[in-house]
Design a protein around this nucleic acid. Structure first.
Lengths: 344, 344
DNA sequence: GTGAAAGCGCTAACAT
DNA sequence: ATGTTAGCGCTTTCAC
């Protein structure tokens, strides 16, 4: 069962067993064969634990994710997609995936993951731009520990990042609406602790200006990315619609868009007819609503792949720092299909 | 930075440092203090890698999950919930979570996870009752490796399992419908490789009989748990409805129910009025459809907790084998709210 | 109560 | 081309 016995059975030293199994160093083909057979016969597999200890590498890629109680920070859709991308990529590169759940009250003790040698690199999901987070990440950076953020930038820092082009996304959404004649476009944003909220706002503003409309900050509402927060805006939005003060809404994620849509429906307002609506993420839910929700598709799986792949590159050469931005794409569905009623 | 230096600074041996940090063996309070201070001062944290190697325990709980290409086997909802439960529990018990993605064509080499000492125990998600899987699991069992299945039983084997009471669930659903006067209840099931499909069918049948109706196998349709497979049944179901041959449908998961609902809507049939519909899982999507979908709520998070918790118990004492079955609960929404039109 | 030393199963430098 | 040996950083007996 152990290497020693394999060595004995094959009539070689333990070192040779190692060489054969790792395919390193010169080995006579015949010995190689003998060793392989012995290993096979004894059903021997080297202990990853011992290997990693000897090599002082855990072989693990850590994924840190905050567990927001009940109110899922990320849609399960986002999470599953990103995680799959990371997982598949890690695996291809010979790394195992270590999941690290952080509970809300727990300190962000990222450095210790490296000091205890639990991970060789880590990806931080759902980071927020708050002082504690910045500090924890800066500490990682100072320690030269390979890490990478997904979907979150920190202005003024040069952290590795993989993000989607949210700015472009909302810009496109605005233009799409403007082209169809919508002129009073509301924007329902998320909290500013997430950089993509800011990005989306920038994009919205840019789109508004490029479409020849004028940016009006009172047209920007704020929710917290939950369905409920979208739902709660329905009354206000309904009123604006009835007053003729708005004819289209872009929400910073699908969950809020869906909540809003449900709220509006209850108030007798038909999305896709009385008002256009576009969400962000193109989650599963976007296809389920009535009418189906137009949404900005984000390649989350690819985001995960890129994060893992680029991050692992930096292990061998820390100069491989990166800030990737992946393109998004507007998916048009019935919620924004109509043409605006053109007022005189 | 290393234990040796801590020992020197504290003026003790390395063994004593260990004792202090692990809280084992008798240590004079004063030495304890000295060591703690030294460790603190040098910012010393023991290497989990070395520890685990010395103890011959990886400290990892593995989670195996098959990656079905694109067609997500489990809804992301199911997956996230179960995974959270497992993750939180593992953490509380001092284990790390190792994610193990298995691609479709890959062999099920579960035993090697243990032989390489990558995990101390593992949870298998999305297992199927096919020969290869049975064999792989049997091999684990033979090797006395602690493992546990979630949401899948294997008849004739005594594998550790945590499952929901799917049988009770569909039984309740049938009775709920029967009480409201529905008499011709269709059942849209999933593939038989998943034991819960069989359980649900049993429950359906039991419910039918207990409600004083008669079981008719032609009332059982089969999909593959995807939304599309539900959608595709819409024509057939619509026809049955128009012929007066059915007045209610239970689908074995929400995704199929939602697909069916969308298909029926396109065919001009109003769910919740022309026909009652109940799904299973109470996923996020159930709240998004129009009308909202009645569904059988499964405590996935708790399933994950139970699986991890009970499994880790078996590590210390293998006699702690288990087969847990958690209760489910019917959530009534508009899709099954109406009372059946009572024919003369 | 504390120190010395063996051993966990592997890698890698060095010797042959 | 292969064997020998010294670690890797920790735990744990066994002395003292």
């Amino acid at each position: 069962m152990h290497r020693k016995e394999v060595a004995k059975l094959a009539g070689v030293s333990e070192a040779t067993v190692s060489r054969v199994l790792n395919g390193v160093g010169p080995v006579k083909e015949e010995t190689r064969k003998r060793v392989m057979e012995a290993a096979q016969q004894l059903n021997y597999v080297p202990s990853a634990l011992a290997q990693r200890f000897a090599l002082r590498r855990s072989g693990n890629l850590g994924v840190i994710l905050p567990m927001l109680p009940k109110v899922n920070l990320f849609s399960t859709f986002y999470f599953s997609e990103v995680l799959s991308g990371i997982g598949i990529t890690a695996k291809q590169r010979g790394y195992d995936l270590l999941m690290l759940f952080r509970e809300p009250d727990e300190p962000r003790d990222y450095v210790n993951l490296f000091r205890t040698q639990k991970v060789d690199a880590c990806i931080v999901l759902g980071a927020q731009d708050v002082p504690n987070e910045r500090a924890a990440l800066a500490e990682l950076q100072d320690g030269r520990h390979p890490f990478c953020l997904v979907n979150q930038r920190f202005d003024g820092e040069s952290f590795n990042t993989v993000d989607a082009d949210h700015q472009m996304g909302s810009c496109q959404a605005v233009k799409h609406l403007a082209e169809r004649g919508f002129k009073r476009i509301l924007f329902l944003n998320g909290p500013a602790v997430y950089s993509n909220s800011l990005d989306r706002l920038d994009g919205y503003r840019q789109g508004i200006e490029e479409a020849g409309l004028t940016y009006d900050r009172s047209m920007v509402l704020v929710g917290n990315y939950s369905r409920k927060s979208g739902y709660k805006q329905a009354e206000a939005v309904a009123w604006l619609i009835r007053e003729g003060r708005t004819d289209a809404v872009i929400a910073a994620n699908d969950r809020m868009a869906i909540g809003l849509l449900q709220g509006l429906k209850e108030l007798g307002i038909q999305v896709g007819k009385d008002v256009a609506l576009i969400g962000c993420d193109d989650s599963d839910g976007a296809r389920l609503t009535d009418p189906p929700l137009s949404s900005i598709q984000v390649p989350f799986y690819e985001v995960g792949c890129a994060a893992a792949s680029r991050l692992l590159d930096t292990i061998s050469d820390p100069r491989n720092s990166f800030a990737v931005k992946l393109p998004v794409k507007l998916i048009e569905r019935a919620s924004s299909a109509a043409v605006a009623f053109t007022e005189s």
